[in-house]
Design a protein around this nucleic acid. Structure first.
Lengths: 195, 195
DNA sequence: GAGTGATCTGAACGCCCGTTCAGTTCAAGG
DNA sequence: CCTTGAACTGAACGGGCGTTCAGATCACTC
């Protein structure tokens, strides 16, 4: 009964990843079964293994892909020369990027402990690379006197936590729009480091 | 082979909760089995049901207990009269309280989606009550002109996310001590709202 | 020292898990 | 029209899941 009309690898593959992403984000990696994912794709569980070696790879590829996108998008973001402008740009970028990908963000922050140690190490490196970009901005600003930060590493983590938190409450169609929210967060970030 | 020497309900009950807390925090609720918890307690799985009606209740009681403690501790915290002093006190309180309970904090932020809807509603009310305490400080400060916050609700969530983030990186014996970290976070919180 | 009841074991219940694979279907190429 | 092979099914594998419960054990009371 296989090979129904209109079923192709080019459709099933991406669909698998989309379904897995949404289910992992909603219920958590450990609580989602391959059979549930298969049902969402519209296929039997066995067929999933034509598109992924196992469940762990499905999770890892989702998370690594998200971090790849994040790092690439940050690199492509136009950055002003002065520390204040750069911090504001970073904050707006971070807020907008994360608001555009709520499912991926949820997974990226919640499922780290479900990665194998080797896969976890890869993600840690990527996360570190991203944090380094912000830390560099803060160190620059502290050096030029634009910012007052007692500890650049602490401030980096504090700001990222603050900015990422936006995904936990923001809903489209609410009281505030994305641009508005991004601007307010950028302003709070600047003030937090004494700009 | 039951009723070994030295086995008592007063020991097994609390021990069950401690083991469940640590395992839930480390591996996640969905990934931990009752048999694993029983092994940690030093008992067969069936015996756990003398101390909890089911796995869900175990999770819920841990989370509700944590929020009860949080709200009670906040109520008992001495608060200055002026908004700046209150915000600084709140920030230091939040950082210290959360650093003292890393396992509970992890569970409280990661396992909300594994609660039944009724249990989730209870936790939501408690979380809301806690956020309201901070929001009241920000509104007071905004009213007296001590703070500049375009949106008190947004600022509340931003600050709580920033402060709670401390648990994700702080380790005892590291470069910075608890009091130091609490002071820096308090300073960043004050600046973030334009104090 | 007999009896009681709290405490716990160990086996079982029905069910779901991730993964494998022989076999079936069918669009496309020759 | 026949062959091929990509795409998929459906059943099975061994194992773990949460929960229940009859029965065993033993500190304690009287």
């Amino acid at each position: 009964m296989a090979r129904k009309t209109g079923s192709h690898a080019e459709i099933t593959g991406p669909r698998l990843r989309a379904v897995a992403r949404d289910l992992f984000a909603r219920h958590g990696y450990a609580a989602v079964s391959m059979r549930q994912i298969a049902a969402g794709v519209g296929v039997q569980a066995g067929a999933l293994y034509l598109y992924t070696p196992d469940k762990q790879a499905l999770l890892f590829e989702l998370m690594r892909g998200h971090m790849d996108d994040l790092l690439a998008a940050l690199a492509a973001e136009p950055m002003p020369a002065d520390p204040c402008g750069r911090l504001a740009a970073f904050a707006r970028f971070h807020v907008h990027f994360h608001l555009d990908r709520p499912a991926e963000v949820f997974i990226a922050y919640m499922e780290l402990r479900n990665l194998t140690p080797e896969n976890f190490a890869v993600l840690e490196r990527q996360r570190h690379a991203y944090e380094d970009a912000l830390e560099a901005i803060l160190r620059d600003g502290a050096a030029t006197g634009a910012f007052r930060v007692p500890d650049a590493k602490l401030a980096t983590r504090a700001l990222i936590a603050m900015l990422t938190g936006v995904t936990q409450w923001f809903r489209d169609g609410g009281r505030l729009g994305r641009a508005e929210v991004g601007a307010i967060y950028a302003e709070m970030a600047l003030r937090a480091v004494g700009a």
